[in-house]
């Protein structure tokens, strides 16, 4: 039996909006650790890893490990029926082919339950080793989203280069070129507005902007985003989910032939 009660139900709504463009069907895995998901996009170029730790739920009961296959557009349809201030409870019985989403209004005067059919999904689980990155950039998530959106009106790919001068986002297209440099800036009023660059050595990598733009659907989950770069690894674009966990997007680079 599985029963997860999340007082801040809007978090689950935001998580679904963050990943449903990238991934169509996925297995949600429940264990004593928490509620997690790992899935690749259909082209196997990007991977999303989500973790919502059990401690972040008001009530978390998971008697045994359970993997629930869901169509993310259908989950999103269900969760969009929950109010932004609703408490969301996810329930499933062992061996059941359905999952129930229960929505309670904050003052308990409205209770709704939506039952959704589960599906069998053959998914590959990948081992993601811990790695040392050549450069780690932390910046406001809204700023990163703005840069990806702006550059995608000029070109299809972004070159992200980190040097001691800062982080540079560059693109080129038929109409011209664009370069946006963000310098390290720790002297801001609020820590979430800072741009912090930890560089072991300079790094420059090329990525498809289409995927980067898709990752920025997670912007409402966190004020900051962390971009970790190494020349021999996929980039990691991480949005921390306050007190609960994270959503991490991995994207394989484009390389010169």
């Amino acid at each position: 039996m599985l029963e997860l009660r999340l007082v801040q139900g809007s978090l689950l709504k935001k998580v679904l909006e963050a990943i449903r463009e990238l991934v169509t069907d996925a297995n949600f895995d429940c264990s004593a650790t928490g509620f997690s998901l790992q899935a690749m996009d259909s082209s196997h170029v990007a991977l999303v890893a989500l973790l919502l730790r059990s401690e972040g739920f008001e009530h978390y009961r998971c008697d045994r490990n359970l993997s629930m296959g869901m169509n993310l557009n259908n989950v999103s349809k269900m969760l969009r029926c929950a109010g932004n201030n609703d408490i969301i409870t996810v329930k499933a019985d062992d061996g059941s082919d359905t999952v129930t989403f229960m929505f309670e209004s904050p003052n308990q005067d409205k209770i709704a339950d939506f039952e959704m059919k589960l599906m069998d999904i053959d998914s590959e689980h990948l081992g993601i080793p811990d790695a040392e990155y050549q450069a780690i950039v932390r910046m406001p998530s809204s700023e990163f989203a703005r840069i990806c959106k702006d550059l995608s009106s000029i070109g299809d790919t972004v070159i992200i280069s980190v040097t001691k001068e800062g982080v540079k986002f560059s693109t080129a297209g038929d109409i011209g070129t664009a370069n946006i440099v963000c310098r390290q800036n720790k002297t801001v009023d609020k820590p979430e507005e800072a741009t912090i660059i930890e560089m072991q050595e300079p790094v420059s990598l090329t990525f498809a902007l289409r995927y980067m733009n898709s990752f920025t659907k997670a912007t409402p989950l966190s004020e900051t985003v962390t971009i970790s770069l190494s020349s021999d690894l996929p980039v990691v674009v991480e949005y921390k989910i306050a007190e609960m966990g994270y959503i991490r997007f991995y994207l394989a680079p484009k390389i010169e032939e």
């Binding site: 690749m40 990007a46 081992g127 993601i128 090329t206 996929p234 991995y250 394989a252 390389i255 032939e257």
Partner: peptide, 14 residues
Amino acid sequence: TCIQRRILGYFSRT
């Protein structure tokens, strides 16, 4: 010209 790498080139199946 650039070629797009795949995730499976970096991470292995468990």
